[in-house]
Every structure is written in structure tokens, then in C-alpha cells.
Amino acid sequence: MASNEGRQYRLGLLTGDGIGPEIVPAAVTVADAAFAAAGRPGAVEWTEFPIGHEAIRELGSPIPDSTLDGLAGTDGWLLGPHDSAAYPEPHRSRLNPSGTIRKHFDLYANIRPAKGLPGATAIAPQTDLVIVRENTQGFYADRSTYRGTGEYMPTPDVAIAMGVFTRPAIERIARTAFQLARQRRRHVTIVHKANVLQLTTGMFKAVTLEVAAEFPDVTVDDFHIDAMTVHLLRRPGDFDVIVTENMFGDILSDLTGELAGSLGIAPSINAAENVAMAQASHGAAPDIAGRGIANPTAIILSAAMLLEWLAGRHDDPVAREAARLIDSGVSAAVAAGVSTPDLGGTASTAEFAKAVVAAIQDGR
């Protein structure tokens, strides 16, 4: 639309720990190149906010209030990995930075595609699906209470965890899944354990089926979580959009990421109605930090997902084209034999990003 021809975005940067300082700048370089190739150079004003070890040293917290306040003034942000297991106490025992951000901004939809890349080694290269994971409730203790945790120990020998499922949360994640399916192959699969967890995941299944009636053009089926792992191993190409609760979605997205190649190429966004956070599915990999060999594919493709989300929210065809150019640029680089050591190649982090930029500039 004409009103969006010169639109500028203010996007937050949270570099993170471990390999974050290597892979996040690579994603920024690629995103800027994609916007330039799409006809809007300088479309993003990147604003960095402290997080992780750096924030602990400077501000006494891995996710300071000033960072949360700053993010509230952006259109979205790019989150690098955090190494919360290595934080000093009391920070290590508290909700980690990504969890804090998701909870603070009610980022209820965790969307994780799994798609094989031509030229890359994959267990199931035909994989092309998306996990749509409810991100605020379910069985995860850090998301099942307003304050505190959903895990507790009434005695030293008894540990109890609670899961929370509500109709509004299920309805909104279900609509997210069906709307996404309409942009893909119009097939939604509900994953649950309603035969045992009848009131909780049974409610998830039932409410999602109610929402399905609003989308008569989308095919719907459902599977128990244990059966679904087998189906994904045997026939991942048969699935399109998979919607499920929090913990099941976390598990299945790691599985499908490996089927498609590795977690090093597995992107994601965490989205609410008005804001979204791009975040690779993998961790901080402190064992290879500083060596320049980390795979930036996942965070680069996560940045593309963020641009696609911005395109939808703001009706911005230039952002959509920039996202398409990133996707095609990554595919072209890998197909040409450029990859990092985890995928069997020899390219450094910076060399891979350079190859993606070159492919974008060539219009591939």
C-alpha cells in the first residue's frame, strides 16, 4: 500500500550469551541486505538492549526492567540465545530471560517451522510443517501461575506440578493455527493426550475442534502425543500445521527440527496480537562460543519470520518481499554448498552470512 512505501521499523536487539554475539549480528546483516534488495534500504532502526551475562554485570539482572520497558517501544525484536544455566544465583533459579519476556508481553503463540533445506543433510528432507505451540499455559510450571511457580513440594519426598488450560487461551492459539493453515496447505493436526488427561488436553482437543468449525475449508485431524511421535518419524511429509499445548509443542518442535536437518536451522517466533519476538530454537552453545563456527541459519530464518509477521500486521509488501529474499537466500547458499561445520561444511558464521547476502543481492 502507498502509505507503507517508506515505512520504517524500530526493532530491538538482544544479543544474548554464548554464540549470540556471533549469530545475531549475522542475522542483522542479512535482514538489512534483504530490505535493501526489496527496495527499502535502511528500513530498520536496530536498538540494542542488555540481557544475560552482560546485563548481570552491568545492571544486576539478566533481564532488567529497563530492557522490558525499552522493548515495549519497539515493533518487535530479535532475541539471541541465553545461557541461564551458567548464571550466578539467585538468577539461575529464577525464570530465564526468554521466559520472562514471553510472560511479560503475553507472547502466546510459539510458531516453529521445520523445513528441509536442499543440499543439507536431513533425516527426512521432505519435512515441511509448522508446530503452533500454546505458549502461556499447559504443564510448564513457569507459565501456569501469575506469580511463583506451578511446582511445589509439600514434603521433601513429594513433588507436585499443576497444568493450566483455559478456553480463551485455547481458542486464540487454535485460531492462529487455522489462519496459518489457510496460508499453507489447509491442514491442521491437533495433538493431545485426551484418553488419559481428559479434562486438560481433552479440553484442548474439544475447544480446538469447536474453532475448526469457523474454518470449513481446512482439513482437521488429531493424534495422541505418543502416537504423533511415531507418525512424524514415519511420514513427516503428511503434516502441515500441528497445534498443541506448551510442553507437547516444545518436545515435538525439537523432534521435527532434527527431522528437517538440525536445531541449527530451526527458526521460531513468539507472537502476541501486537508484538513478536524472533528467537532461534537452539541454545547458547557455550562450548563453541567465540570460535566463529556457529550456524546462524536458525536466527536468520527467525528474522525472516519476524519480517513476515510485520508484513502481515502492517500490510507491508516490502517487508514480505524481504522475508522471501531471506528464505530464498539461505536455501541458495546451502544448495551451493556453503554451510557451517554442524551441517558438514567448512564456512564460518560470517562466511555463511556473506553467502546469504550475496544470494539475496543476486535475486536468488
Score class of each variant (00 low, 15 high):
120 A>T: 12
122 A>K: 00
123 I>D: 15
123 I>N: 14
123 I>W: 15
126 Q>E: 15
126 Q>I: 08
126 Q>A: 10
126 Q>W: 02
130 V>S: 04
130 V>D: 02
131 I>D: 07
134 E>G: 01
135 N>A: 04
136 T>F: 06
136 T>L: 13
136 T>Y: 00
136 T>Q: 07
137 Q>K: 00
139 F>H: 03
139 F>C: 06
139 F>T: 00
140 Y>F: 11
141 A>Y: 00
141 A>M: 03
142 D>Y: 00
144 S>F: 06
146 Y>W: 12
148 G>N: 09
150 G>T: 03
151 E>T: 00
151 E>N: 10
153 M>S: 14
154 P>L: 11
154 P>D: 11
155 T>Y: 12
155 T>S: 15
155 T>A: 13
156 P>L: 00
160 I>L: 03
162 M>N: 13
163 G>S: 09
167 R>G: 14
168 P>V: 05
168 P>H: 07
172 R>F: 01
172 R>D: 02
172 R>G: 04
174 A>F: 07
175 R>C: 02
176 T>A: 07
177 A>Y: 05
178 F>I: 01
178 F>R: 04
178 F>V: 09
182 R>W: 03
182 R>Q: 13
183 Q>Y: 04
183 Q>K: 12
185 R>I: 07
185 R>Q: 08
186 R>T: 11
187 H>E: 14
189 T>H: 00
189 T>L: 04
189 T>I: 08
191 V>N: 02
192 H>D: 06
194 A>E: 04
195 N>P: 03
195 N>F: 08
196 V>M: 12
198 Q>L: 10
200 T>R: 03
200 T>F: 06
201 T>Q: 09
201 T>W: 09
202 G>K: 07
203 M>A: 15
203 M>L: 15
204 F>D: 10
204 F>K: 03
205 K>S: 08
205 K>W: 13
206 A>I: 12
207 V>C: 15
209 L>W: 05
214 E>F: 14
214 E>I: 11
215 F>K: 05
217 D>F: 15
218 V>Q: 02
219 T>L: 15
220 V>M: 12
222 D>A: 14
222 D>G: 13
222 D>I: 12
224 H>A: 13
224 H>S: 14
225 I>W: 03
225 I>L: 08
226 D>L: 07
226 D>S: 08
227 A>W: 00
229 T>S: 08
229 T>R: 02
231 H>P: 02
231 H>L: 11
233 L>N: 13
233 L>S: 12
